[in-house]
Write a protein that binds this DNA or RNA. Sequence first.
DNA 1: CCTACCGATCGGTAGG
DNA 2: CCTACCGATCGGTAGG
Lengths: 211, 211
Amino acid sequence: MAAAKDKDVEKEILREATRLFAARGLEATSLQEVADAVGVKKQSLLYHYAGKDALHRAVLEALLSRWNETLPLLLRAAAREDRFDAILDETIGFFVEDPSRARLLLREALDRPDTMRALVAEFVSPWLAVLSDSIKKAQGLGTIRPDVDPESYIVMVIHLVLGNVATAGTVSSIAEKTRGSRVPDRIVREIKRMARTALMADATEGRRAAE
Amino acid sequence: MAAAKDKDVEKEILREATRLFAARGLEATSLQEVADAVGVKKQSLLYHYAGKDALHRAVLEALLSRWNETLPLLLRAAAREDRFDAILDETIGFFVEDPSRARLLLREALDRPDTMRALVAEFVSPWLAVLSDSIKKAQGLGTIRPDVDPESYIVMVIHLVLGNVATAGTVSSIAEKTRGSRVPDRIVREIKRMARTALMADATEGRRAAE
DNA sequence: CCTACCGATCGGTAGG
DNA sequence: CCTACCGATCGGTAGG
């Protein structure tokens, strides 16, 4: 029975550490705070995770392994006719489902650029190559604007999603009086509209219809 | 002579605090580190700034007062024919000139959402209203896409600029093997292209010319 | 009385 | 998982 309870505590530590690291940052969060949030002693936390670095690594690994789980969904979405909308929906959904993910990644990029670069190379590059090729092929067919720089465009969309989700209710409080940390619908709509318009060659259809 | 030297030290403290708070965050930076970077004792730093909070406030005030200085430039840019390109250029320039500005604001949004909301309300809302009205008028004239949500669109552009400048060489290392903290030219170009294409009704001209 | 500091140390807390 | 602790460093302040 102790083993099952240990696992529960271990997962609870990971949950609370994720939440606190995302909310305040790694260096601004003490192990004592994490232990208090779980309801155990700091020294018990150190039994499950060797130290702060180990806990930090475990938090990032949990996030990235969840991301790898959604990759099949992304690939399935990529097979659909409206593939770019579908991929964007899946990506937005992943971060909206738990905004801590966006905050953790943005903090990692700010606090430890070199670590982040390594994570990007390992977890983003694979599907970046696929997506980028797909954009280039569509440019050849004329369905995607020829002036799009595929790699840079993907960087833009990542920043739109991460930035808006991570700072939900702060920068976006310009447009919406949302108190909580949810991303307002009109912000999500504008992310999608902007991503689509800046990409698709026939994106002016909405304008023509409105005339 | 002592008075002139005091001002120098005080400005140097502000410079180094800005750099360190932007690079590591407020709570992860000790007053000792700031003092060491300046080359004075921590206690001398505490003579010039009553405490860490006072230093933090001074750093934000310096940033925001510099921003207010560039507002006339923005308004002058807004009078030009190509006003949206010009305003975007001025805004990108402000943050590229000192990437610490983007990092500080992004960290403030992550670390202290309520403080950030207040800063946004005070320093962004004024020109947001002007810009937003200008977009709505242009929508009436048909020069700007009718499906643009003006306020949300401006939030998007802010996130593109802040995110790309703050994490330069990290997320954007996908597209460019830039080691330093400079924003790669192709990233800046894609920010401008995306902002323009998603806004202007005649943004497909580039495509037509390429056909 | 004030300025621009210094060496030393305050009470608490950090990660381990 | 807890009790009993450590070397060090935190932001801030004492007298001079």
